[in-house]
Design a protein around this nucleic acid. Structure first.
Lengths: 131, 131
DNA sequence: ATAGTATTAATAATAATTACTATTATTTGA
DNA sequence: TCAAATAATAGTAATTATTATTAATACTAT
């Protein structure tokens, strides 16, 4: 998309996502950006989130429970979803593992595998210790 | 859930999912079951799908594009989502790989990993050959 | 500065799913 | 076998999440 103009709102959204580890929903982004741009509209947030996803600057996550979530870290990596508190966390996985898994999966498959996205689930550290 | 009564509608939904490879949406299930029970309501379909998921009889998939989809095969396995035609297919992966991946992921993680769900994406065989 | 056009705020509209309620179906056990 | 108890249903309304519309505004290149 060559004919794209700068917008403070979009920049602010990108910046916010780059500095949080929260994997926020569109609504959470909206609430946050409103502190700086009090009359930004939710539609603008959605449109820019989708634009940024299209451009590969951020990643959209669909954990399956409520709303979609967004991650400012666009490097392929894995996520963990706590089945108790619904928090989402990044997982560190050794580089190479992802490609390895793509290969394993592609072995018996006659289509073309480009990548994969994985959600691990279970109890996060806090919920585990709280018992 | 001990106090659960039999219902022909629920049985029919379960049976349909057990015999299709389509990974249908709630609406597709609704349309199909209506052939046998013409005045089943969409709410009934949703309620029973959720019940069956809770009981572990079926699996709910959230591919991230449109609606959720349902899979009558409740054994853990992987799915492939075609980014062109949006079809969903089961992938055959050697047993043991899934547990292996859970272990790798759990290594540097201080919570408790119970399982994971993975979507591979790319082009299905048809879309690949159609070029 | 100005013209051209992407972006915005505000709102309306759509899509997907859940909640509500009076009626019906299933189960239990006398 | 029947009737009481209650889960499930059909039909509909409501909610939630997201996308579309549009007139006004902001960005960019000349």
């Amino acid at each position: 998309m060559a004919n794209m103009k700068y917008s403070r709102q979009r920049e602010s959204i990108k910046e916010y996502l780059a500095h949080t580890r929260e994997h926020p929903t569109a609504d959470m982004v909206y609430i946050n950006i409103r502190e700086k741009y009090p009359n930004i509209s939710l539609g603008t947030v959605y449109r820019n989130l989708n634009l940024l996803v299209e451009q590969g600057e951020i990643i959209k996550l669909s954990p399956g429970n409520g709303s979609d979530r967004f991650d400012g870290n666009s490097m392929p990596h894995y996520h963990f979803l706590c089945t108790e508190c619904s928090c989402i966390q990044d997982l560190d996985i050794a580089p190479g593992v992802l490609d390895h898994i793509n290969l394993i999966a592609g072995a018996g498959f006659d289509g073309e595998i480009r990548g994969h996205s994985t959600f691990f689930y279970g109890k996060c550290a806090k919920c585990k210790s709280r018992n």
